Amino acid sequence: MDSEILNYPIHRFLDSSLLGQFIGPEGSNIYKIEKYNKVALDIWKNDEENSNVRITGPYWNLKSALNDVLELVSTIRNKNQRYKFEMPSKDIGFLIGKNGAKINEIKLSSNVDVHFERNNENRDNGETDGRVVVSVTVSGNYQQILIGLRLIYDRLTSKGQKTLYEDPRTRQFAESLMESLD
């Protein structure tokens, strides 16, 4: 059988920081696709330094391997979604809590990753009234992000009062968390 080559521009669909997840530990994901479809698969960069997947093998095997590549890319994208919002820098300390205790509880409870990035420029739009704002990025899958955002919202709206999130071992916390999953 003649071998053909199929190039898939993975850089259009997957951020370069996620290529490691595509490759898998010790190349396991690539190995599985190669072995199951009886093709050769490698990642290469074109002249513009964009990552591409090259699949080499018989025509019908290429189609099957491409389907597996698309499925893997879709799975990785769904697991690595991001939600970004801005908030006034004066509220960040309350959200984080002493020694990061509150934000760590939110991260552990919802299984998300939260990053803060201070914007050094003052904004003069109606939303921030010229105050310094901080960009907050919440990463995870869709459901985890929703839970994390709810916990962040609850933390920010509870300023000055005790909430059931103070002790995540309570029954109320578990019920509330399960309710947010529905």
Rank of each mutant, 00 (worst) to 15 (best):
T163M: 04
K102N: 09
R118A: 08
L108P: 03
S89K: 05
V114C: 07
K162H: 07
D113K: 13
G100I: 04
V133G: 00
D182R: 10
Y83A: 08
G93I: 06
D167V: 07
T137P: 01
D129K: 14
I92K: 02
G93T: 05
D167P: 05
E105W: 07
G97C: 08
Y153T: 05
L146A: 13
E127N: 06
L95Y: 01
G93F: 05
Q172V: 00
S135C: 12
T137V: 12
Q144T: 11
L151V: 03
L108A: 14
S176T: 07
S89A: 12
L146R: 14
V136W: 10
E166S: 08
Y83R: 09
M87Q: 03
F85P: 01
E166R: 01
E179L: 03
S139E: 04
I145A: 12
Y83H: 11
L149D: 00
D91G: 03
S139M: 15
R82P: 03
V136Y: 10
L177Q: 01
F94E: 13
N120Y: 09
L146E: 06
L177Y: 00
I92D: 03
R131V: 15
D167G: 09
N111C: 14
L95D: 00
Q143C: 15
S89V: 14
I96M: 12
E86M: 11
R123G: 02
I106M: 03
G140E: 02
I96P: 03
D129Y: 15
E117M: 09
G160I: 05
R123S: 05
K162R: 08
K90H: 06
K98H: 11
V114P: 01
V134A: 11
N119S: 07
S109L: 12
V138K: 06
S135A: 12
R155N: 06
I152M: 07
N80W: 15
L164R: 02
K98S: 14
G160R: 03
N122P: 00
V133D: 02
E127P: 01
Q81P: 09
D124M: 09
Y142F: 15
K98Q: 13
V114I: 13
T128S: 02
R171C: 08
K107Y: 04
S158M: 06
D129R: 11
Q172M: 04
Q143G: 13
T170D: 01
N120L: 10
N122L: 03
S110I: 12
E117I: 03
R171P: 14
L146C: 14
T128P: 01
S109W: 00
L151W: 00
V136C: 13
Y165V: 00
V138Y: 02
E166H: 05
I92L: 10
L164H: 03
N141C: 15
E166C: 07
P88E: 12
N125R: 08
G140F: 05
Y153V: 08
R123Q: 08
R82L: 11
R169K: 15
I106R: 00
G126D: 04
N119I: 13
Q81V: 10
V134L: 11
R82M: 11
D124P: 01
S139C: 13
T170S: 09
N120M: 10
G100Y: 08
Y142I: 14
P88Q: 10
D91R: 01
H115F: 13
N111P: 08
G130D: 04
Q161I: 08
F85S: 10
D182H: 12
